[in-house]
Each structure stands twice: as C-alpha cells, then as structure tokens.
Design a protein around this nucleic acid. Structure first.
Lengths: 346, 346
DNA sequence: ATTTAGCACTCAATATGTTCGAGTGCTAAT
DNA sequence: ATTAGCACTCGAACATATTGAGTGCTAAAT
C-alpha cells in the first residue's frame, strides 16, 4: 500500500518529530534523511501521506506531524527490527520470586530501573490471581476487639489488615486455627477456603459468626483482583518538554495518582507475551491521549506480573523498548545472581 | 510596637493577598477593609509598614505584598483566636491504635481527609522510636536460601523484609527462635535484643553468624528512625494558582517525592504539642521557600506521630488550621466510634 | 497634627503593528 | 518522474503604543 519511498519519508518524519518536537518540513527531510531527493519531491510524497491519514498539518503553512497511525507503523517497525536475542524468556515471573527482597522488592527496583533507563515513568504491578498459593496465615491479637490478619503468599508477598472481632475468641483458638490452616501451606486458596469453611461449621459452632466475618476479609484480600502498583520517579515527567504545559501534566498525573484507573488500563492489555505498545488514543482513556504505554507481562500459576513504562506519545520508543528489554533480561538472570551472592558476605 | 491601625492594615493586606494572590493597593483596602479611612491615609501606613519589614513592593508602582514576617504575625493571631475548645487532647497517638485499620490505616485516612478538607496536601507520619514495644516476630521460609522477617509492633504496625540466609537453618530452629522471642512480647526492643543476643551466643554456636546477620536486619527495621509517610492527593497542588508555574511545582514535588527530605524537615519541628506553623524560609529547605507547613505532633511510648498539611505560603491558614483541628478531634473520638461499631454488623 | 484630595509619575500588562522565515502548493522547465 | 522557482500563508518574535492600577508628595481641609 505504501511505496518504499513513502515508508522512508514517513519513518523519517516520525523519527525527526520525536527528536525535535517541532513539525517537520520537506527541506529538513531532504537535507537530513533523504539526501538524494529534493524538497519538492518530498513535498509531494508528504501530501499523499497526509491524504492517507499518516500525517497532519497543525496549520496551513506548517510542516507535518505524525498521526497515531504513523506512530503505530513506526513502532511496529521498531519492534520487528528488535534483536531476537533481546527477547527475554517468556515466564520471567517465576524468577522474581528468587529476588533477594521478594517479589515486592524486585518490582520496586525494576520500576526504578525502568524510570532511570527510560527517563519516563516506570511501573510494575502484580495481580494476585485466585490460584495464588498460600505460604502462611496468622492471626495476631492487637487489642481486646481487634486482630491483625496476616497472609503470606508464595514468593513472599505479604498482605495484612486489621479486622474488628466482635466476640472474644481466645488466643488459643486463634493459634489452633492458624496451625490448622498452615498445614495446608502450598495449596491454592480455593482449596484452603473450602476446608476452612468446613472446619468452622463443624467445630467452631458458637464462634461461627465472627469466623465467617474473618473469612470474608480473607476473601477480600485474595479474591479481589488486587493489583499492587509501583510507579517510580514521577519527577522525570517534569523534564519532558511535552509536559511543560501544566494541563497535559495534570491529565497524566491524575491517572497515575489513582491506581485503580491505571490498573484498569493495564489489565486490558496484559495478555500477550512479548512487548506491547499502546499509543495515544489507543488506550481509551481520554486523559492519556498524549501518552503512550509500553508493557510486558508474564504470568505464572498464582500471579500475573506486568512491567512497563508510561510517557509522552512523542517518546523515544527505541530507548524505552530497549530499557524494557534490558530489565527483562536482568530478571531472567536473577537466579544466577543469587547463586553468586552466596559468596558475597556483607 | 505596631499601632492598632497599623495592625489592622497589615492583617488586611495579608488576608486580601491570600484571597486574591495579587499585590494589594491602598484603594482596595480603603474600599473593602478600612472603609472609614481614605486611600492616602492607608498609603502612609503602608509606607511605614514597609520600612518595618512587614511589606514589600514587587516593583515601584505596585501594591504591597506581605513578607514572611507579616505572615508570622497573621498566623500567630489566627492561632490565638482559635477556640480553646478546638484544642484536641494532647496524646491522641494512643487513640490511633484503636482504629479499625490499625495505625497505618488511620494515618492513611487522616492524610486523605486532611487533603480533602484543606485542598492542599495532607500528610501523616509515624516515627518508630527505640522504645517501641514488640508484639510478635516471625521467620518464614520463602525458599532454600531466603526467609521473610516479620515484625509486628504494638498498635499493629507491620514491618517485613526478605533476607538472604547463607546457611541452612532448619525450620524447627526458626520456629523455636520465634517462640522464644514471642514470650517477650510487650517488651521494648532494647530488652528483647539483649536477651536474644545472649541466646544466640550460648545456644546457637554454629549458626551464630547467620543469626547475627538476621539480628542486624532487625536492627535496621527497628532502630533506624524509620518514618513512614503518607501524603495524599498531590493533584490538589495543580489547582493551586501558585503552582501553575511549573518551576515552583517541581520544587515542592521533588521534596515530596523523596520521603527522606520531608522526614528530615518534620523531625526538626515535631516537638511541641499544639499546632505549629512553619512559614516559607523558616523551614530551611530552599526548595520550599514558597511553601508553608502546618503540623501537629503527639508522642507516646514507642512512637511519635505527626499530622500535617503542606501547601503554598499563600495558603488559607484559617482553613488549614481548622481542618487539622477537625481531624485531631476525630481521632480523639475514635475510641467512642469503636464502641459504637460493635452493633453495626456488616 | 491628622487626614485627605489632587497631581505627576512609574511600570506591568495588554493590545497593536511589523517583520521574518519556514513551509506549502502549484506550475513550468528539465 | 523530478526539480527549480515563485507566490502565498501564517505563526513566532520583536517593537511600539495604550491603559490603568498604584505610588509618593504636596498643599489644603479638618
């Protein structure tokens, strides 16, 4: 559909626009990209590309600016050209569990590293799926009417919550309960729950009500599609020219501040295995029209994990993609790091 | 030192400037505040106030703007006029422990409420002092060479960290260790630590090294003046006219993003009992010259807790102070709420 | 001895006009 | 098919009024 040369012109426009942020004119292209052809020739090509919906003019006597469609083509080209060797192993999520600071620690540093390498905003999320395996549950009395509910999942993810306990269960009963549950360590929450419910019905007659309440809280922790998000270095955004305009900055910021919105966005896309790029309006969140999101996800039994970068639509896609590749590779190598670490006593 | 009328003029300037953000001229004051006096009279007073360092002119033919000194006077006046009944009970920190979501939950909602009421940024912090009392410690194996260190302090504050464990301690030893420590529940960390060290030396000969390492991690968690900070609703700042200028916003934002800086600032001031206001340069952090901080702190045995609001120097001090008063009062009433809650089964 | 009206003066903010140059589309020559 | 040339467009940048809110000072009024 596009001739060889049209493609070349188009990619050049995108490239130049990403670098300079200014609309690109035919002369610039003729001098810097397609040195063989004159400005007039390129002008004709650009007019055609505009007709096809790849370019637009901000005003009549201005150069061209790429549309989302153009970015799409550009990004797909970049993704195709990517070294196959760069492709990280598919299920990197399992490796995370081996990280010295647990899944949470690993994701925090991953998001920080992503921010640093990309100079935009790195993010990392874990979605706790229903099949998460239990490591340990504990109930700890805080005062006469409250206790702390503590759940540790495989991989070292810790959830805790204080719950109100209307009736007085003795500490012994709590301990007994915890002990029973913990014999089921390593099983999925679904199984544990069933057994637990049985036990409550049969043996805890008069405490059944309060136990059921606690069970609900547990469900809330585990069944809820609870997504933990880490976003790093928001201040990076203040250096991005596109966000010097306070209005645009606010739009992005308001989304980043309410995790739920972000989580919703991410959840829709975290399906495929490689690297996925969502450009501008493609994300269906009006506030993020000027933004692009680069994502990579992986899932294993209990959890789905997502790493990504969010930045302006006019972002340096090559840089971001290679940053993500790099982090994925690092994660793939974690198990080796750990082996090395044993010799390194601090 | 100031005549009655000078004071009136000065407070009017501050009031008007806080409202409008524009430099205030004599005519405005004559019409809106001191209707009895003419503009010329007020002009003379203002000239005097400028000489005394309470007002400045941004440029020769402009109205006056209050200096930090003027704000100080204004704020002190507001604080004095405050209803004595508004003054919350001094040691509200103890009440926090009774909150249904534990200290952390309480502080999160407090900071959110503060943000909402003040329309600036609310914050809440706990400083873990060395005398914190222990509720429970646990060690949980994550994989062959790592375990999760879990510390629960009085009041339901939970700390956890994954540590690398070079040698293989059996789960039994870990459990035994935890059991021993937990008999000391309710004691201060200092005491626990001493006993623990003794035990390690005497009974755990061959594992001493790895245990000592774990002990260090525990120290890091507990001894470090670890301050947990919660800041709410940063996006509020984007509505504040003073921060429409991206430079000013960035200055504040960079501080808020690195908790340590903020913690340092807070720590210096969290001594007195009532409400304290730090205006502009008084905070000694150059980035925050355009900002003011309103703080209230309370401490009890193990922890010091601080609530506050940070916003522009030109903030609505009355509003912020009453917001803080309101939240303090709410906290004072928590124990009653809890009593009420028992009837409310969800 | 205050207070106030009046006047000349200052200066940021706003509006208005001018120039400049990068960029386009079109046409005619290559 | 390509390109040089030309007229035209329009934003950005700069220069130049215009406006108005505000001051300080002085002299008259209270």
């Amino acid at each position: 559909m596009l001739t060889e040369r049209q493609l070349e012109v188009l990619l050049s426009v995108v490239h130049e626009f990403i670098e300079s942020g200014e609309h690109v004119g035919s002369r610039t292209l003729s001098k810097r990209y397609l040195t063989g052809r004159s400005a007039a020739t390129i002008r004709n090509e650009m007019a055609d590309l505009e007709e096809m919906g790849y370019l637009v003019q901000p005003h009549a006597s201005a150069g061209r600016v790429p549309t989302t469609r153009a970015y799409r083509l550009f990004v797909d080209t970049v993704l195709q050209r990517r070294q196959p060797g760069d492709r990280a192993s598919v299920a990197w999520v399992d490796n995370l569990k081996a990280h010295r600071n647990g899944v949470e620690g690993a994701l925090t540093s991953a998001s920080e590293l992503l921010s640093q390498l990309s100079s935009y905003v790195g993010m990392a999320a874990v979605t706790q799926l229903k099949q998460a395996r239990l490591t340990k549950i504990d109930f700890i009395r805080v005062d006469t009417s409250h206790f702390l509910l503590l759940v540790i999942l495989e991989g070292g993810v810790v959830h805790h919550r204080v719950v109100n306990m209307p009736c007085d269960l003795s500490q012994e009963i709590l301990e007994d309960l915890a002990r029973r549950i913990n014999t089921l360590s390593g099983h999925q929450w679904g199984e544990v729950r069933a057994i637990l419910q049985n036990y409550i019905m049969q043996e805890l007659g008069k405490y059944a009500d309060s136990c059921r309440k606690a069970l609900c809280e547990l469900d809330a922790i585990l069944e809820g599609e609870r997504t933990i998000l880490f976003t790093g270095a928001l201040s990076n955004l203040l250096d991005v020219p596109d966000f010097q305009d306070i209005g645009r900055f606010r739009a992005l910021f308001s989304i980043l501040e309410q995790e739920q919105e972000l989580a919703k966005l991410i959840r829709n896309y975290g399906v495929s295995d490689g690297i996925e790029v969502i450009i501008g309006e493609e994300n269906n969140v009006p506030e993020l029209d000027n933004c692009s999101v680069v994502l990579s996800s992986s899932s294993s039994e209990g959890q789905q994990t997502i790493l990504g970068v969010i930045g302006p639509k006019r972002m340096n896609y090559e840089k971001v993609i290679s940053a993500l590749d790099r982090v994925l590779r690092d994660i793939a190598n974690i198990s080796e790091d750990i082996r090395g670490e044993r010799h390194d006593v601090r």
